[in-house]
Simulated scan of single mutants.
Amino acid sequence: MLVREIMTAPALSVRADSDLEEGLKVLAEHRVTAIPVVDDEHRVIGILSEVDILRRAVEPDSRAHALPVAQSEPLPKTVGEIMTPDPKNTTEGTDVASLIDLFTHTSIKSLPVVRDDNQLVGIVSRSDVIRALWRDDEDLLDDLHSAFHDYGQTHWKITVDHGMVEVAGAGNATEREVAVAIARSVLGVRRVHVVEADQLA
């Protein structure tokens, strides 16, 4: 499964000189956790996340404190004042499995998807991955049969159980690798196991 198959495109974006209210509105209205910040050439130069806003854009309410709240620095007015510059990004051809590793080991919830020279083409989030994995086994099996048919690989027996795919039949090592590659190309496949003919009951 590749990023281009699950990403949201085109991606919402804001400029660094955009009013912070505009960034807040986009996050709230579209219910996203982050939006890329782009320059005049639509290249990604930063990202505005919920965390960025929570850190800088809310002033303490004196009613909740026993003592007066100390004078704080002025609240930011533009996206560029609080965005995270030079964020991590990914490309359309990246394996989603590598994103899962990133999402599960960091606090990152979404990544801009870029092409040459950091041009924004989409965004991919943890929610996109979850939606891609949530597929009915019957629908998944239909897509697998279609994919194998398109590659002329109709001699394999395919079964699906909760997104786990078993491909059974005769074939040499190269043919088995091809079968695995075809199966993994289908959106929603979580794992592929090849059973050789002599292992069948």
Score class of each variant (00 low, 15 high):
W156L: 03
M164K: 15
E21L: 12
A66E: 07
M164H: 15
R184K: 15
R190V: 07
S62F: 06
V32G: 00
G122P: 04
V113Q: 05
H65V: 08
D139C: 07
L12C: 00
V178A: 11
T106M: 10
I108T: 13
P87K: 05
I158K: 04
I53F: 04
G171F: 09
P60G: 09
V186Y: 13
N118V: 02
S127T: 12
I35N: 07
V165K: 10
D86M: 13
I6R: 01
L111P: 01
M83A: 04
K25M: 03
T154S: 10
D139S: 12
V186R: 09
D61V: 03
V160W: 13
H30Q: 00
V114G: 03
R191T: 06
I53G: 01
G80F: 05
H193I: 10
R4T: 02
D39M: 14
D139P: 07
T91W: 11
T159C: 04
Q153L: 09
E177W: 07
S62Y: 06
G23C: 06
L27I: 04
L200H: 11
P36E: 10
A168S: 14
A64I: 05
L141Y: 11
M83I: 02
T174I: 10
S125H: 10
G80T: 03
R115K: 14
S62V: 14
K88D: 07
I53S: 01
V3H: 00
T94G: 00
I6N: 01
G80H: 09
P87D: 09
H145W: 15
H162E: 13
V38L: 10
R190G: 12
S127M: 07
H105A: 13
D136E: 12
S110L: 01
R176W: 04
I47Q: 08
A132I: 01
E29S: 04
P74Q: 03
S98H: 11
H65N: 08
I6T: 01
F103C: 06
S185F: 12
A28W: 06
